[in-house]
Write a protein that binds this DNA or RNA. Structure first.
Length: 525
RNA sequence: GCGCCCGUGGCGCAGUGGAUAGCGCGUUUGGUUGCGGACCAAAAGGUCGGAGGUUCGAGUCCUCCCGGGCGUACCA
C-alpha cells in the first residue's frame, strides 16, 4: 500500500498542489487511475482554502487555492516581517554545523570558500527552520602539520634576522610565512634567539598560530561569516576527552594492537580494512583525534544533529568516521556529511594551482576584492555541492554586469524605490485591502512569495542550499513581470494601497531570501 | 583495480519516479512621451554521454560501457 502524497504542481495549469497518488494506487487496487482520482475527490471534505479539486488524466488530482485565501497571505507576510518563512521543524533541537576548519598554517584560499559559503548558508536556513544551530570552526593545533608550521615559521624568523637557516623538507614555502616572520622579527625582536631552540620554536609557533587565526577570522568576515565557536584539537587532550573516547572504544571491543600500532577494528563494522589510531611512535593519527572530536560533539556537548562539511578530497574518510561514531554508541544517522566537489580556479582560462605548501595561492581576500562578496556567495551557492566547479575570476568579473546577482538585487532596489516614492507622496497603505489583488500577475507573485517557507523546509531536510539562489532569481523574474504589467502607484487609491502591500511583502520575502544567503538587499544601486 | 561525485540546448547550471525537460548568459526580433530599461515580451536552439533493464510512467532507480574530477597512507 503506497503512502499518500501531495506536492507542488510544476505548472500553473495544474493548480497549486497536485498528487499522482491515484496512479500509484492503481497498481495495488486494480482499478483505473482516473476513477480512483474521482472517488478520492468525492471523499475529501471541503476546505476553506481550496477553490477546486479536479481529476486530470492520466490520474492526477489537482488542487487550486482560493484567490482570497492567497491574497490574505500578503497580510500574513506583512505582519510576520523578518520572521516570515521561519518554520519549526527543528523544534529547538540542537544542530551543529562545522565547516572550513582549515588548519591555522596559512591564509584561506578559494578552495576553502565553497565550504564556508555552504556552511554559513545552511546554518542560516537551519535556524530559520527552528533549529538551535551552532557554527563551529575546528582547528588542528597539535600534530605533524602544526609542528612543520612551527619549524617553518622559526626558520623564516631566523632568516628575517639575517641568520643562516634552511627550510625543512616539505615545509610551508608560501610568502605569507616570510611576511609573518618579518612581522615577528620587528615586533618581538631577537628574543627567541636567546632561549633554547625547542622552546623558541614552540613559543614563536604559538604566536604564529594566533596571528594566522585572527587573519582567518578577518578574511571570513569579508564574506560575512562568523562562527559561534572555535574549537581546538588541544582541548581534546587538555580535559581527558581523547582518553575517554579511546577507552570507550576499547571497552566496546573495537581496538586491537598489532604491528606495533593501535588499530580501530572497523572491519567488525563492515569496513574494508582497519585503521590506525595510534602510530607505532605513540602519536595519534588524525582519525583518532577526529573520533575524540565527535565523541565530544555527541556525548559531551550532546548535539542532536551534527553536520560536517568537507571537500571531496576527504570523502574516503566518511565511512570510517561514521563507523567510529556508531562504535561510540551513537546512531550514525545523527552525523551528516556534506561533501562538496573541488573548485578549480582559473584566470582567463588558465588553471591556477592552489597549493599552500608551494605558496602559489589566491587568497579569499583577493577573490572577494576582485569579485565581490555578494557575487561570490551567489556563484558558489548556485551550484549543487555534488558538482565540481571551475571558477574563472576573469569571467566572474566580466559577467558581473549581466549577473543574476544584480538582477535579483535590482528587483529589491526597485521595490525600495517604489516604496520610497509612495512615502514621499504621503500614501499610507497600512489599511490597504488585499482582496483587490485579483489580477493574474498579482496572484502569480503571491504564489511565488508563498514558496519560501516550503523551500526552507526542503533545504533543512536535504541540506541542499543551492535551491536558494534559483528561487531568488525566479522571485525577481516574477516581480519584474508583475511590475511591467501592473502600475503600483496610480490614480486608483484603493488599488494603489493594495498593491503597495503586495510590493512590500515582496520586499520582505526577497530580502529574507538574500539574507539567508548572507547577501545584501540594497535599497539603491 | 576498487569506492564516491559529475556528464542535460553554443556556454554556465536547475530538475523531490509523473502531465509538453526548465532558468541565466549568448543569438535573433519586438517593447516605455507614467512608479528605476541593470527591465519586459517573443523566437530559434535538446534523440538528457551510450546500451540494456525495472515500472502504467525514467533526466531521475538497477546493471554494463565511455568521458571527467576526487579518494584509495602508521598525511590531514
Amino acid at each position: 500500500m503506497p503512502e499518500p502524497f501531495i506536492e507542488r504542481s510544476q505548472k500553473p495549469e495544474h493548480g497549486d498542489y497536485a498528487s499522482g497518488f491515484p496512479l500509484k494506487l492503481a497498481r495495488v487496487a486494480g482499478a483505473k487511475p482516473m476513477s480512483i482520482a474521482e472517488d478520492l475527490i468525492g471523499l475529501m471534505p471541503p476546505a476553506p482554502e481550496i477553490k477546486s479539486i479536479v481529476a486530470a488524466p492520466p490520474g492526477f488530482i489537482n488542487f487550486t487555492l482560493k484567490s482570497d485565501w492567497l491574497t490574505n497571505q500578503v497580510d500574513s507576510i506583512l505582519s510576520a516581517r523578518d520572521s516570515y518563512a521561519n518554520i519549526d521543524i527543528g523544534r529547538g533541537s540542537r544542530v551543529q554545523v562545522e565547516f572550513v576548519s582549515l588548519n591555522p598554517t596559512g591564509p584561506l584560499h578559494v578552495g576553502n570558500v565553497r565550504g564556508a559559503i555552504l556552511g554559513s548558508t545552511l546554518a542560516n536556513v537551519l535556524s530559520a527552520a527552528g533549529y538551535d544551530a551552532e557554527r563551529e570552526y575546528y582547528f588542528n593545533d597539535a600534530g605533524n602539520q602544526i609542528n612543520l608550521f612551527y619549524r617553518s615559521l622559526f626558520i623564516r624568523y631566523l632568516q628575517a634576522l639575517d641568520k643562516e637557516a634552511e627550510m625543512p623538507e616539505a615545509g610551508y614555502m608560501g610568502n605569507y610565512l616570510v611576511d609573518l616572520a618579518g612581522e615577528f622579527a620587528s615586533t618581538e625582536g631577537d628574543r627567541f634567539l636567546k632561549m633554547d631552540e625547542a622552546g623558541a620554536v614552540t613559543e614563536l609557533g604559538k604566536l604564529g598560530v594566533e596571528r594566522v587565526i585572527s587573519k582567518i577570522k578577518e578574511e571570513l568576515q569579508l564574506l560575512g561569516i562568523e562562527f559561534d565557536s572555535w574549537f581546538t584539537e588541544q582541548s581534546l587532550y587538555g580535559n581527558g576527552q581523547y582518553e575517554r573516547a579511546m577507552s570507550l572504544l576499547r571497552k566496546e571491543g573495537y581496538i586491537a594492537e598489532k604491528e606495533g600500532a593501535t588499530w580501530f577494528v572497523s572491519t567488525a563494522l563492515g569496513e574494508d580494512k582497519d585503521n590506525v589510531l595510534v602510530r607505532s611512535d605513540g602519536s595519534p593519527t588524525y582519525f583518532a583525534t577526529d573520533i575524540a572530536y565527535h565523541y565530544n560533539k555527541f556525548l559531551e556537548r550532546k548535539f542532536d544533529r551534527v553536520i560536517d562539511i568537507w571537500g571531496a578530497d576527504h570523502q574516503g574518510h566518511v565511512p570510517r568516521l561514521k563507523a567510529a561514531v556508531g562504535a561510540l554508541g551513537v546512531n550514525p544517522e545523527r552525523l551528516e556529511l556534506i561533501i562538496h566537489q573541488m573548485v578549480t580556479l582559473r584566470r582567463g582560462g588558465e588553471t591556477v594551482r592552489v597549493s599552500k605548501r608551494t605558496g602559489d595561492i589566491i587568497t579569499l581576500r583577493e577573490l572577494v576584492d576582485e569579485v565581490g562578496s555578494d557575487a561570490c556567495r551567489f556563484f558558489f551557492l548556485a551550484r549543487s555541492a555534488n558538482s565540481q566547479m571551475d571558477f574563472d575570476m576573469e569571467l566572474a568579473k566580466k559577467e558581473s554586469a549581466d549577473n543574476p546577482v544584480y538582477y535579483v538585487q535590482y528587483a529589491h532596489a526597485r521595490i525600495a524605490s517604489i516604496l520610497r516614492l509612495a512615502e514621499e507622496r504621503g500614501i499610507d497603505h497600512s489599511k490597504g485591502d488585499v482582496s483587490l489583488l485579483t489580477g493574474e500577475p498579482e496572484l502569480f507573485l503571491v504564489r511565488k512569495l508563498l514558496l519560501l517557507p516550503e523551500l526552507v523546509d526542503t533545504i533543512a531536510r536535504t541540506l541542499e542550499p543551492h535551491h536558494l539562489p534559483h528561487y531568488a532569481q525566479e522571485l525577481a523574474t516574477v516581480f519584474h513581470s508583475f511590475y511591467k504589467q501592473c502600475r503600483v502607484i496610480s490614480e486608483d487609491e484603493d488599488l494603489t494601497k493594495a498593491r503597495l502591500k503586495l510590493v512590500e511583502a515582496a520586499k520582505i520575502v526577497l530580502a529574507k531570501t538574500l539574507h539567508l544567503m548572507e547577501m545584501t538587499a540594497p535599497g539603491k544601486m
